[in-house]
Nucleic acid binder design. Structure first.
Length: 338
DNA sequence: GTCATTTGACCTTA
DNA sequence: TAAGGTCAAATGAC
């Protein structure tokens, strides 16, 4: 599915042009959004700035003649993000892709999904943002070469429902407001989603016009960060996709209703919002997995990464899709926004 | 009393 | 053997 869509980006100049057109449109929308926002909403202004920046980078990546790897390096350089995983963290075990290196521990061969999330609110607490699942911490470990310890979490429903999902959360060395989150396994539990109202209640006020623009902006975009092991593997750029709010898409987390029903924008604006309750503690992240068996995926994922950050930054649900359906898998989008 | 977190010990893997 | 990952007893919060 994504294979199809990504082919259209990587190997088809016409589609690439289409994406550029779409991204240019997004840029224009962001401009309008910024105008509507005025100067009263710092958070929104920050988001629009981020969206704008990411969009420009996306265009740059697509139009770059030097290929995606080069673009990744530039993007990483632009954001000032050193690669957190390249040297300091043991997650470099994903360097060769999730299923390739047979020297990895067996446990490492489990499906894993790696994201970077930003605390966006000051960095207090170990749970950067809410991902809609309940996690229980079962360990913490000092990691060689890393300044900050890594926290180990498992699904609260591990015993009651046999859910095998786990995650590791580690504050990045270079930016204490950023967290590297590695998800292992899939949720097989069934959780009641956090009420959308609850999520919305925690948000800053939003200008209706701004919301409209954001909806327009995000129409047709979805977040798929699968295959992040390949991303993390990049010794140069590390993760270029950072966003104050990382919300998840859907997917193989079958049975876990939380991620599909809750507001994707329940991200905290203040640190108090993290870890307030098990159901609200953690990242709004969306995990999905793809069989990244080809190095091409790495380049393709570059665009995904940027799009993910874009969507995460705008963080508005999009009930409808747009022309980008050639680029993105509409089935997944539909299921996510269902 | 229940549940989550902390933390040292132990296990597994490269 | 070193390091990452997990277990489980101790502890604390509610």
């Amino acid at each position: 599915m994504m294979a199809r869509s990504m082919e259209s980006v990587d190997g088809n100049g016409a589609s690439g042009g289409l994406v550029v057109t779409e991204l240019s449109h997004i840029k224009e929308l962001v401009r309008q959004l910024e105008l509507h926002l005025g100067g009263s909403h710092d958070l929104c202004k920050h988001l629009t700035t981020q969206i704008f920046s990411l969009t420009e980078r996306s265009i740059s990546i697509i139009t770059s003649s030097s290929g995606l790897d080069g673009a990744r390096k530039r993007a990483a350089a632009d954001t000032g993000l050193a690669s957190p995983l390249s040297a300091a963290t043991p997650t470099s075990d994903v360097t060769d892709g999730p299923f390739k290196n047979t020297k990895k521990r067996k446990v490492m061969e489990k499906r894993k999904h790696q994201v970077r999330v930003s605390s966006a609110g000051g960095g207090a607490g170990e749970n950067p943002v809410d991902d809609g699942h309940s996690w229980r911490k079962y360990g913490q470990k000092e990691i060689l070469g890393a300044k900050n310890p890594r926290g180990y979490y498992r699904c609260t429903h591990r015993h009651s429902q046999g859910c095998q999902a786990t995650k590791q959360v580690q504050r990045t060395d270079e930016d204490p407001t950023l967290f590297d989150v590695i998800y292992h396994g899939e949720h097989t539990c069934v959780q009641r989603p956090m009420g959308a109202a609850t999520a919305a209640a925690g948000q800053p006020e939003h200008n209706p016009d701004a919301n409209s623009l954001l909806q327009s902006l995000t129409a047709g975009l979805t977040v798929k960060t699968e295959g992040l092991p390949a991303l993390a593997a990049d010794p140069q750029g590390g993760w270029s996709a950072t966003a104050p709010f990382y919300f998840s898409s859907s997917t193989p987390m079958s049975g876990c209703l939380a991620t599909t029903e809750r507001s994707p924008f329940s991200a905290p604006s203040t640190s108090e919002n993290w870890g307030v309750s098990p159901a609200t503690s953690d990242s709004n992240h969306v995990a999905s997995y793809l069989p990244f068996e080809d190095a091409e995926w790495r380049g393709q994922n570059e665009l995904q990464e940027v799009v993910s950050a874009l969507v995460a930054a705008s963080a508005a649900p999009a009930p409808a899709v747009d022309n980008l359906d050639e680029l993105l898998d509409m089935d997944d989008i539909a299921s996510f926004f269902a």
